[in-house]
Design a protein around this nucleic acid. Structure first.
Lengths: 163, 163
DNA sequence: GGCAAATAGTTGGACATCCAACTAACCTTC
DNA sequence: GAAGGTTAGTTGGATGTCCAACTATTTGCC
C-alpha cells in the first residue's frame, strides 16, 4: 500500500527539472496539506464517540474556557476563523445535542450568545482526554518536530492577519 | 481585525492550566489546521483564473509529469491520497473543461485512463507559474521555515503510511 | 472450466464550508 | 428623532469530500 518513494520528494524533483520554480514552497505547501488531511481524519475518528468533529470540539472548548461559559456567535467565528454560516451550523449541531444553548444577548438584541451547558462541560473534558490520548494525531513526530512546526508556522499565521 | 494576542498561545495556556494534557501537540495540530486553511484560500484564489482548484491542479500536474500523459483513475487517487469518488469528481470537472480526456485502459476493461490534453498541458504550465508567483501562499515564512516544516512533517506522513 | 473473492469506477446521500442575499437591530449624523 | 450605513445572525444555493452500495470486470483457486 505505501508508495516505494516519498511522493513529495518526487514532485519536488519534477518541479526542479522542469524549471517550474518555487519547488521548496511547493513541497512545504503540499506537506502541510497532507498533514492536515491525516490529522483531521485521526482527530475526527477520536471525537466520533462524542458525536463531535474538530470544529464542534474547538467551539465547545472555546466556550468552556470563556469567562462566563458563553460568547456571541460572532466572537466564536472570529476566534476560530470560520465563516458566520459555519458558526450557525456548528452551534446548531451542538445545540441539538444539548451541549450548548442559544441565549439572547443581554444588551444587544441583534446578537445571540452560545452558552455551554453542563453536559457540554463534561463532554468537552472527556473529548479533550481522548485527543490527548492520541496526541492529537501527531504520532510519527517527536517533541522537537512539534515545536519546530508550531514555530515555523507562526509567521504564516501572523502574515494572514490572525494576530 | 487581528487579535491582540496569538490565539494558539492562549489556547495552550488554557490547556496547561486545566491539566488537559498534550498542550504542545494541540498547539501543533491547531497550527497545521490554520495554516492549511490560509494556504488553501490563497492557492485557490491564484488558481481561480484557470478554473482550477488545488485538487484539480494536483491531478493535472500528476498527469503532466507522468510517462505517457495518462494514468488509471485509481493511480491518481493513490498518489493524491483522495477517495475514489473525489477522483471521479475531479476528473469530471477537468474533462468538462477539456483539460483531460477519459480513455479505455488498453488491457484492463474495468479501468479508465485519465489522459491530459494539449490544453491541459498549457494550462497546467500557466497555473504552476501563478502558484510560483505567490510562493504557494507561504508569504510570512522564510526559507528556513519552509524546510523546517517539510522536514518535521515527513515523519507524520511516513507514520500515516504514505511511503 | 467455473465460481468466489477482489478490484475499478460510478452513483446517490450525508455533511461541512463558503458566498450572496436577506432581516433585524444598532449607531451615526444632521 | 429620522435616514443611511453598519453589524449580527440566518437562509438558500454551489462546491467538495467522504461513505455505502452498486455494476462490470478480473483474478485466484479447486
Amino acid at each position: 500500500m505505501p508508495l516505494p518513494f516519498d511522493p513529495i520528494d518526487e514532485a519536488r524533483r519534477n518541479w526542479r527539472s522542469n524549471d517550474w520554480g518555487a519547488a521548496d514552497p511547493m513541497a512545504a505547501a503540499t506537506s502541510i496539506t497532507r498533514a492536515h488531511q491525516v490529522l483531521l481524519h485521526r482527530i475526527d475518528a477520536a471525537l466520533a464517540p462524542f458525536d463531535l468533529n474538530f470544529s464542534r470540539f474547538e467551539a465547545l472548548a472555546l466556550l468552556h474556557f470563556s469567562r462566563n461559559g458563553s460568547l456571541p456567535l460572532g466572537k466564536v467565528g472570529d476566534r476560530l476563523q470560520v465563516h458566520p454560516t459555519s458558526v450557525t451550523n456548528t452551534i446548531d449541531r451542538l445545540e441539538a445535542d444539548g451541549l450548548v444553548r442559544r441565549t439572547p444577548h443581554p444588551t444587544d438584541r441583534r446578537a445571540t450568545l452560545a452558552e455551554i451547558t453542563n453536559r457540554g462541560h463534561t463532554t468537552v473534558e472527556q473529548a479533550a482526554g481522548a485527543l490527548a490520548d492520541i496526541r492529537f494525531g501527531l504520532d510519527g513526530m517527536g517533541r522537537d518536530d512539534l515545536s519546530a512546526v508550531t514555530t515555523a508556522l507562526t509567521g504564516l499565521r501572523e502574515d494572514a492577519g490572525d494576530f
